[in-house]
Simulated assay, not measured.
Amino acid sequence: MLIKLWTVRPAGDFAILQKQGVYTADERYVMPERMEAYQWMSQRLAEKTPAPAGARFPLWAWYHAHGSKRPKPDLRKRGHFQQGEKGVRIEFGAVLDN
């Protein structure tokens, strides 16, 4: 089954995706207070499925960000970025194996 997911990233990250054709989470940008959680989550995910080549940490994505009637993250809502920072919402598909 194919599902749509969305991730919200700084605008410059979209340029990386366009240039490289691939985008992975960059550990340089993980806040130190969240590093342990990222490592724990990565280990749990690795128990279920191997990580894609070059990927160390998961990329946050939404299936339903604001409920079933408005599943996409809304960039007009506060909290995605620092005030004045430009961002993008990237949509992609994921295949779920049953």
Score class of each variant (00 low, 15 high):
residue 1 M to P: 02
residue 3 I to V: 13
residue 4 K to M: 05
residue 4 K to A: 09
residue 4 K to E: 11
residue 4 K to N: 10
residue 4 K to P: 00
residue 5 L to V: 07
residue 5 L to G: 00
residue 5 L to M: 10
residue 6 W to T: 00
residue 7 T to I: 04
residue 7 T to S: 08
residue 8 V to K: 00
residue 8 V to F: 02
residue 10 P to W: 07
residue 10 P to K: 11
residue 10 P to D: 10
residue 11 A to R: 09
residue 13 D to H: 09
residue 13 D to Y: 06
residue 13 D to C: 06
residue 14 F to Y: 11
residue 14 F to V: 11
residue 14 F to T: 07
residue 15 A to S: 08
residue 16 I to A: 03
residue 17 L to F: 12
residue 18 Q to C: 13
residue 19 K to V: 02
residue 21 G to N: 06
residue 21 G to I: 05
residue 21 G to R: 06
residue 21 G to F: 05
residue 21 G to E: 08
residue 22 V to E: 08
residue 23 Y to R: 09
residue 23 Y to H: 12
residue 23 Y to I: 13
residue 24 T to F: 07
residue 24 T to S: 08
residue 25 A to W: 04
residue 25 A to L: 09
residue 25 A to S: 13
residue 25 A to C: 14
residue 26 D to C: 06
residue 26 D to E: 06
residue 27 E to M: 03
residue 27 E to D: 14
residue 28 R to A: 13
residue 29 Y to Q: 06
residue 30 V to F: 01
residue 31 M to G: 07
residue 31 M to K: 11
residue 33 E to P: 01
residue 35 M to I: 14
residue 35 M to H: 11
residue 35 M to A: 12
residue 35 M to K: 15
residue 37 A to W: 15
residue 39 Q to I: 15
residue 39 Q to V: 15
residue 39 Q to K: 15
residue 40 W to Y: 15
residue 40 W to T: 13
residue 40 W to M: 13
residue 42 S to W: 06
residue 43 Q to N: 15
residue 45 L to H: 06
residue 45 L to G: 02
residue 47 E to I: 10
residue 47 E to W: 08
residue 47 E to V: 10
residue 47 E to C: 12
residue 47 E to G: 12
residue 48 K to F: 07
residue 48 K to I: 15
residue 49 T to Y: 10
residue 50 P to Y: 04
residue 51 A to R: 14
residue 51 A to F: 15
residue 51 A to G: 07
residue 52 P to G: 12
residue 52 P to L: 13
residue 53 A to P: 15
residue 53 A to C: 11
residue 54 G to M: 10
residue 54 G to T: 10
residue 54 G to R: 10
residue 56 R to I: 08
residue 56 R to W: 04
residue 58 P to L: 03
residue 59 L to C: 06
residue 59 L to D: 02
residue 60 W to A: 11
residue 61 A to F: 02
residue 62 W to R: 00
residue 63 Y to P: 00
residue 63 Y to G: 03
residue 64 H to K: 12
residue 65 A to H: 02
residue 66 H to F: 01
residue 66 H to K: 02
residue 67 G to Q: 00
residue 67 G to S: 00
residue 68 S to I: 04
residue 68 S to M: 03
residue 69 K to P: 02
residue 69 K to R: 04
residue 70 R to Y: 08
residue 70 R to F: 05
residue 70 R to M: 04
residue 71 P to K: 01
residue 72 K to G: 01
residue 72 K to W: 04
residue 72 K to N: 03
residue 73 P to A: 01
residue 73 P to T: 01
residue 73 P to S: 03
residue 74 D to N: 11
residue 75 L to P: 05
residue 76 R to H: 09
residue 77 K to Y: 06
residue 77 K to S: 11
residue 77 K to W: 04
residue 78 R to S: 14
residue 79 G to E: 03
residue 81 F to R: 01
residue 81 F to Q: 01
residue 81 F to P: 01
residue 82 Q to Y: 12
residue 83 Q to D: 11
residue 85 E to N: 03
residue 85 E to W: 06
residue 86 K to S: 14
residue 86 K to T: 09
residue 87 G to E: 01
residue 87 G to I: 00
residue 87 G to K: 00
residue 88 V to F: 01
residue 89 R to F: 02
residue 89 R to N: 04
residue 91 E to G: 07
residue 92 F to M: 08
residue 92 F to H: 05
residue 93 G to Y: 09
residue 93 G to D: 14
residue 93 G to H: 09
residue 94 A to N: 05
residue 95 V to F: 11
residue 95 V to N: 10
residue 96 L to P: 02
residue 96 L to M: 08
residue 97 D to N: 10
residue 98 N to L: 11
